[in-house]
Structures are given as C-alpha cells and as structure tokens.
C-alpha cells in the first residue's frame, strides 16, 4: 500500500536522523594560562586516597596516602599528638592509665561512629588546627597523668570495637614513648618517637607499627589538598576537596573576590590591604561547593609562605562540571611579591 510505504520510509529516516548531535557551539576564545599550573594527584574520586602537599616556590606537588599514618607527634617545644585529620579517625579518652587493663569491655557504651550526622566534635582535633585543643591532651611530664585513648581509624568499623586501637603516650627524654595495641589484644607494643625540628610532626602508623614519612619538611610545603575532617553546624563533617595551609610553619592566606580586584590585576601593592588568616581553614572549603556550583570562579587566594613570598592562587578545576576530573584538581598560581 502506498501509505504504509510512505510511512516506513518516514519511520526509518526519522529514526536515523534523530540521533544527530545538538551541539552548535560558537567558536570560543580561551585566554592562555598566566602563571604556573599544577595538577594534584589526589588519586581520584570524592574520597580521594591521597593528600597532596604543594610548594609554590619549588613548583612541586607531593602526594602521600591519606591513611598511611595514624598519629602525628609534634616536633615543636610542646608535647602534642594529633589524630589523622585527613581521615575520618575518631578517638576518646578513658580514665585508665594502665593500658594492659584496657580491653573490649572498655568500649561498652562508647560510640566512635563519626560522619554523616554521627559523632561529636570532641572526637576529633580542633578543626582550626589549634594544637592546644587536640583530643589527646598534652603529653604530661608526670608519667601517671597520661591516660589511655581509644582510637578508631577510618578503615575500622564503628560497630566492631575489636578493630579499634588503644594507645597511651608518655614523654621520653626530648621525644615520646608510645604504647599501643588493638583493643582486644593483650600484647602491648611500644615505639620511641623522636622530634625532628625540620618537620612539623613525626608520623606513626598503628597498622604498620612504624614511623612513616608523610609531610615534606615544614619549609617545603605551603598548602595541602585532601579529604579532611571539618565541621558543619556543631557536628564533625568530612570534606572532600579541602585545602589546609601549613599553619605550623607560619603560612597564612587571604581570601579575595574578583569583585574587588581581579585575579590578573592583583599586584604587590594590593597585599597590604588584605587580612591574612593563620587558621587551618583559611582556604578550607570556601573555594568550592560540592553540589551544583563546583568552584566559585569569583574567588581566589593570596598565600604568604613561610619564607615571606606572596603568591596568588586560583582553582582551575575540581571535576564538578568544570571539565576536570574529580580527585585530580588543577590549580594555578603566580608569584606576586618575593620575600625581601
């Protein structure tokens, strides 16, 4: 029949052509990058496996596995121990001081569940990096004042305390002495940890029972990009694409809005007018939103490194509708003023 032949042709033709592309983009001129660009090897994904330390003056980026360490022992004059704040590690103090008497029964009624609404800010170190507000109290010179802590690594299970650790730290000469074991174990391991003034911290892995190299020397990094412990309202919250500054080495940062001065126009003469912040979250998560927006393209940062150099820093892509790949952020920076 005539009609059905028409129809068949029509159906076939329509089927074929409706698959053609709808891209009708006009030619776009993209200005070349002004300054240095670095792609950070976060390892991919929203909970990227690496922390990436960036040194602007050396144009270098160093990646370290986030979960490769558990505790950081401060190298400064104070005796301070930090939890791994680049993981969702949580910890709580017990009243006991004899680690050999601590067992699974001490976990009864203790919840170390953290993240996605669970947990309290008392289970993690100060999110602004204040070393006087860590979960583990200052290691006392009075040996008997140092209590045992329960520590749940990110990889452990909140509902299974046998995957947690018990730790106790005391001073040992100019360094630290660490006693630790899995919560259900009776054999207590020990480790001696020394301070090295060229680093902020000495890092120790409870899983591997050894000190590990994580951060570059304290003068050799300015900012670090990582999945990190932070907060929302009054509860702990773990942020992807979080940026901390090397506050213990003296790095500070100021947040800028292109509405005030554009990134390309920012010059050494503009530095004096800015307010530099020394807290861990001076950059933090303020540069991006993980839903919808992605990077706030109107924001950039001025970072003063430990040597006194000033850099301007902007985020090029983070993998949220910006042509980048999640977990491999791209940054751009440029020296504004050298240390005199």
């Amino acid at each position: 029949m005539k009609l059905s032949r028409h129809f068949l042709v029509l159906a076939v033709v329509t089927g074929f052509l409706s698959a053609c592309s709808k891209d009708e983009d006009a030619t776009v001129v993209i200005p070349p990058s002004d300054g240095s660009e670095l792609t950070l090897n976060g390892g991919g994904g929203t909970g990227s496996p690496n922390t990436v330390y960036v040194d602007f003056s050396a144009d270098s980026a160093t990646a370290a596995a986030r979960t490769s360490w558990s505790l950081g022992f401060y190298s400064g004059s104070d005796y301070r121990v930090v939890l791994n704040g680049f993981t969702s590690m949580s910890a709580v103090a017990l009243t006991k001081t004899d680690i050999s008497t601590v067992g699974l029964s001490d976990a009864e009624g203790v919840s170390l569940a953290i993240g996605q609404g669970a947990g309290t800010l008392s289970m993690i170190d100060d999110v602004f990096g204040d070393l006087t507000k860590t979960v583990i109290a200052e290691v006392s010179a009075t040996e008997s004042s140092n209590v045992v802590y329960l520590v749940k690594p990110e990889t452990a299970s909140a509902s299974d305390p046998s995957t947690w650790y018990k730790v106790r730290i005391t001073r040992s000469g100019s360094g630290y002495s660490l006693q630790y074991a899995k919560l259900g174990e009776t054999t207590i391991k020990t480790a001696a940890i020394t301070k090295d003034a060229t680093y902020n911290f000495t890092f120790f892995s409870l899983e591997n029972g050894a000190t590990v190299k994580v951060e570059p020397k304290k003068a050799e990094w300015d900012i670090a990009w990582s999945y990190a412990a932070y907060y929302t309202a009054t509860i702990p919250y773990f942020f992807s694409d979080f940026v901390v500054i090397n506050q213990y080495a003296g790095v500070t940062a100021a947040k800028m809005d292109t509405a005030t001065i554009s990134y390309s126009n920012f010059a050494a003469t503009d530095i004096a007018a800015q307010t530099f912040v020394s807290a861990r979250d001076a950059i933090g998560s303020s540069w991006r939103a993980t839903t919808g927006n992605g990077i706030y393209k109107n924001l950039y940062y001025i970072v003063k490194d430990a040597a006194g150099n000033y850099y301007k820093l902007k985020f090029v892509s983070m993998g949220l509708n910006d042509g980048g790949t999640r977990g491999y952020p791209v940054i751009e920076y440029k020296l504004v003023q050298s240390a005199s």
Binding site: V28, I30, S33, I295, K297, K314, S317, V330
Partner: peptide, 9 residues
C-alpha cells in the same frame, strides 16, 4: 565553559 581551562562538561 570553564574559562580557566577552556573546557565544559
């Protein structure tokens, strides 16, 4: 278009 890298997703 992300004008910093000339790409769009």
């Amino acid at each position: 278009i992300n004008y910093d890298n000339g790409k769009a997703t």
